[in-house]
Amino acid sequence: MYLSLGLFGNAIVSGLLLGGFYAAVTIGISISFGMLDIANIAHPGFIVLGSYGAWYANSRFGVDPLIASVVLMPAFYLLGAGIYQLYYHAFERRGDASLRGLAFFFGLLFITEVGLILVFGVDYRLVRAPYIGPSLYLGALEFPLRLLVPFLASLAMVGLLWLYLSRSFTGRAILAVAQDAEALRIMGANPQRIKRIAFALSIATTSLAGAILIVIQPVEPSIGRDYIGRVFAIAVLGGLGSFAGTVVAAILLGIMESLTATFYGPSWSPAIAFGFLLLALAVKPSGMFGR
């Protein structure tokens, strides 16, 4: 296969934009797994739920999917708070979070998937929006708006979350609970409440991440599974809990997948995420930006 510079450049650009989307998908895991140590493998399931929320609002009422997902965020926040409450009482409080906690989230992943199949069927769903289709051009480089708009929305969400965590009182308490829950208790804050807020936030991000997903590609209920490997690979390589690391790792994976898809064929790209994850686990489990 001959290597054209334009093809290569466009593969890098679409990988970069795809990476922005991966950051949106992963940021919730960086909070729940990276900071709270809750291995929420059902996270991609909630992202698909977010996609269906955006799809329903879009196809039924004609609302822009991204705006609809922001409106739906409080509902996802409440869902997250409820799940954490259940998780806390059933597992975390008993100190039995590892085996049964994992199986619990696995069950949740499966229930959301089958539930969506029962309600909406197994057809692929897609949304309509003015930015799906046209592209911006910068010389020979093509910036499809279908990828560019989600990229910007994703960076905005990550930026706002970072501002919240580093500036607000509750946000700093979340960072503190990630370091030492016991010390936080001594300082007079309730770690369980802080963790509930943080976990609820992580689920709230899935609303927008889901909308971004359905803008980028058609969605069916079981598509979440393809993202489990990617999401955890990025979170681990980004150094669990580091936002900057998550964004860098997401973009890195996006570019690698895009290059693979361009030069070897898209059916191989899921294998890249796994290679990425194994490499991260085998070489440097604390990630690129590990503490």
Partner: peptide
């Protein structure tokens, strides 16, 4: 242990990728 669990989950997806190809 959590890392092992996640890796096994990803492994199934990759094994499927290989068989598809």
């Amino acid at each position: 242990g959590v890392f092992f669990s996640i890796a096994t989950l990803a492994m199934a997806v990759v094994a499927q990728t290989f068989v598809v190809n």
